[in-house]
Amino acid sequence: TFTSYQLEELEKVFQKTHYPDVYAREQLAMRTDLTEARVQVWFQNRRA
């Protein structure tokens, strides 16, 4: 599960791009204290 802060950050990036590159995902992962893999999976699920 994600915190409301994490979801907010993820959604913010999703609004800009549905396909963030690895750099964007790593920045987001650091900001949200998630792994890059978790961020990647979240985007895959969000796009589905």
Rank of each mutant, 00 (worst) to 15 (best):
R31K: 11
H18S: 09
P20M: 04
R38Y: 08
F43S: 00
R46Q: 05
R46E: 03
R31S: 06
R47V: 07
V13A: 13
A37R: 10
F2L: 13
V41S: 13
E11H: 03
L28Q: 00
W42E: 01
R25S: 04
F2K: 02
W42I: 03
L10H: 01
L10W: 00
L10M: 13
Y5N: 09
V22Y: 14
E11F: 04
T1Q: 12
T1A: 13
N45W: 13
Q27C: 08
A24D: 10
F43L: 04
A24S: 08
L10K: 15
R38A: 15
H18F: 10
W42H: 01
Y5D: 08
Q40S: 13
S4T: 13
R38E: 15
T1E: 14
Y5M: 08
T3F: 05
A48W: 08
K16R: 12
L10D: 00
A37Y: 12
H18G: 04
V41M: 15
E11A: 03
M30S: 10
P20D: 02
H18R: 14
A24G: 05
A48C: 12
P20F: 03
E26Y: 13
A24P: 15
Q27V: 09
F2W: 08
A29M: 10
T3D: 05
Q15L: 12
V13K: 03
L7P: 01
R47S: 04
A37S: 09
L28M: 03
P20R: 01
L34H: 01
T1Y: 13
R31W: 06
T35F: 03
A29D: 15
R38Q: 15
R46G: 02
E8N: 09
F2C: 04
V13C: 07
P20G: 02
L28G: 00
V41K: 14
E8Q: 11
L7Q: 07
R46T: 03
R47H: 04
Y5K: 10
V41G: 11
R31N: 06
T32E: 01
L34I: 05
V41E: 15
F14Y: 13
Q6I: 04
Q15W: 06
R38T: 15
V39Q: 01
V13G: 04
Q15Y: 07
L10C: 05
K12E: 10
L28Y: 00
L34Y: 01
T32Y: 05
Y5W: 12
T32H: 03
L34P: 11
V22H: 13
H18A: 12
S4V: 13
K16D: 09
E36Q: 07
R25Y: 07
L10G: 00
E11L: 05
L7T: 08
E9I: 06
L10T: 00
T32I: 15
A48M: 13
A48Q: 11
Q27K: 09
E26L: 15
V39P: 00
K16G: 06
S4W: 11
D21R: 04
Y19A: 04
H18C: 09
R38D: 15
F14D: 06
E36V: 13
D21H: 05
A37L: 14
V41R: 11
L34M: 08
R46P: 01
Q15D: 07
R46L: 02
Y5H: 07
F43K: 00
S4A: 14
E36I: 10
E26Q: 14
E8T: 09
T1R: 11
R47K: 03
L28F: 07
E36F: 08
V39H: 00
V22L: 15
F43N: 00
K16H: 09
L28D: 01
D21N: 10
Q27A: 13
E11Q: 04
Q15P: 00
E8M: 13
M30G: 09
E26N: 12
P20Y: 04
P20N: 01
W42N: 00
Q6T: 03
T1S: 12
E9T: 04
Y19K: 03
R38N: 15
L7Y: 05
D33I: 07
A37V: 10
N45Q: 14
H18N: 09
R38S: 12
T35C: 04
F14P: 00
L7G: 03
M30V: 10
L7D: 04
Q40F: 11
